[in-house]
Design a protein around this nucleic acid. Structure first.
Lengths: 217, 217
DNA sequence: TGTACATCAGTGAACGCGCGTTCACTGATGTAC
DNA sequence: TGTACATCAGTGAACGCGCGTTCACTGATGTAC
């Protein structure tokens, strides 16, 4: 079709397989994905992928690791944009980046947290996953250093809270009951990353400041 | 083994199949579950379940619906315990009940939010899922009615925030990277429901009150 | 209480399917001299 | 520049597997009279 005639040796099959997998996971979900289908999509025999990955799990694990790197990048970029902002505003920006990342890269996000791939992703304890976590951790340390906040919440409490918050928002919008937003309340799905993090930031701010997207009556 | 000799007609096969499915999903996860394995566990031929459920999806959908009813119940009970508490404390109790429910009933929780079962669970828009949501919604309305909070957050913002928070905490502890708690920060997995909701409540409280489980330094 | 019969709730064999992975193979590519 | 050869990256057929579901069946149970 639109497929270029390639040399016999594909040259870039590894990349093509990864991309095809991402597409298929995004379309059908992790559990519907088969390696044979990926090969079919890449226009290649079912055995070909084994020249690039030892197993299906290794292929998906590679995508998961890519995902953590992309996430860490997105978080870092968000931080830079808010370089002059308050600790709370920085944390908010990171959080929004997390949720937005999940929505923009659903396949990566699903694979990153798929239980069956933990062995593959864990193998690099020092790599991208740890890096992403470190960014969050550091941002929270700065928030906790604000006296009004430190008096109410611990580092551990805030880490678990913040992570849960953005992870939950991502999950509910991606797979779950928030996929269509919350029409009765006038919330569209694409507003969720901002709404949820801005509401959070409002609650943390030392004194009542701006109200989140949906003005309280 | 410990299996009672039963009459030829099993009498309670429907129940047995549901229970076996819950066990197996809890042990292996939704996607590893096969109807044949459920039948095997129930000591019955692979065709037997079809006298009770039209398909595998219908069986799992029935469990998901049970789950929503159990969840709504747990939330309602938590509310009763806090009957004399503040709106924030009521909301916190509901949230803790949500996370605890997920941990105590992992199979139900997974099935309730499994995308492939949405058709089955959605079929009862007026049933248990809507009921659980209504409890949350009402608790949040009371929270928003507190002036200091209403000035900072909208109903919509808080609904999405609160749901995301508890859903994320549940997901991270059940499947994810929080399954083992957060040892570096001294958080054990079983503390998460309380820690996360108490930190949340502290942040919402009009004035600095108690600090969450982990005291700020 | 007994009997005839309909219905219920199982059985076990079979269906077609797509899967992950392995294998022996072969044509294309890269390298040494 | 040409040639010999090792290696690389594919092919295509085959493996064994477990799955969801269907089917004709049959023994157990419940019901009408």
């Amino acid at each position: 079709m639109a497929k270029k005639k390639r040399a016999y040796h594909h040259g870039d099959l590894r990349r093509v397989l990864l991309d095809a997998s991402v597409d298929l996971v995004a379309k059908r979900g992790v559990d519907e994905l088969s390696l044979r289908e990926v090969a079919r999509h890449a226009g290649v025999s079912p055995a070909a992928p084994y020249h690039h990955f030892a197993s299906k799990g290794e292929l998906l694990g590679a995508i998961a690791l890519d995902g953590f790197a992309l996430l860490a990048d997105a978080m870092r970029r968000a931080l830079e944009v808010e370089a002059r902002g308050s600790p709370v505003e920085k944390l908010r920006a990171i959080g929004e980046a997390y949720v937005t990342f999940a929505i923009d890269h659903p396949a990566h996000f699903h694979l990153m947290f798929h239980p069956s791939l933990l062995p593959f992703a864990e193998s690099t304890k020092e790599g991208a996953p740890a890096h992403a976590f470190a960014i969050l951790s550091e941002a929270i340390a700065q928030v906790v250093a604000v006296p009004e906040i430190g008096a109410r919440a611990s580092q551990a409490g805030l880490v678990v809270l913040a992570w849960s918050l953005v992870h939950g928002a991502a999950s509910l919008v991606l797979d779950g009951p928030l996929a269509g937003g919350l029409p009765e309340l006038g919330v569209r799905a694409e507003e969720v990353p901002e709404l949820v993090t801005r509401t959070f930031a409002s609650l943390m701010s030392p004194r009542p400041a701006k109200v989140a997207t949906h003005r309280a009556k």
